[in-house]
């Protein structure tokens, strides 16, 4: 799991990008703000993944799968 809580963009996307180099089918990313939530989602979708968001009260768990 990528823990990108508290990090401002572009760090969460860079971390996701690095993690996704292993080309697995499922990743989890934790963020705690709207901008990284949108940016990581956008990036994952651009790589052909689906994104499901779980709201954990101010923090968001992104379930990225294909």
């Amino acid at each position: 799991m990528v823990d990108a809580r508290g990090l401002s963009c572009p760090m969460p996307v860079i971390m996701t990008q690095k993690a996704m180099k292993s080309k697995e089918d499922y990743y989890e990313v934790m963020v705690d703000a709207q901008a990284p939530l949108e940016n990581v989602t956008r990036y994952a979708k651009s790589q052909g993944y689906n994104v499901e968001v779980e709201d954990k009260g101010g923090e968001y768990l992104l379930k990225i799968s294909r």
Binding site: C9, P10, V13, I14, Q17, A35, Y43, S46
Partner: peptide, 19 residues
């Protein structure tokens, strides 16, 4: 929109993201 003047070029280079 999270508009940012450095973000445009940066995201294009890093992620091929043009928004």
């Amino acid at each position: 929109t999270r508009l940012c003047m450095v973000g445009g070029m940066r995201d294009l280079v890093l992620f091929k993201e043009t928004r």
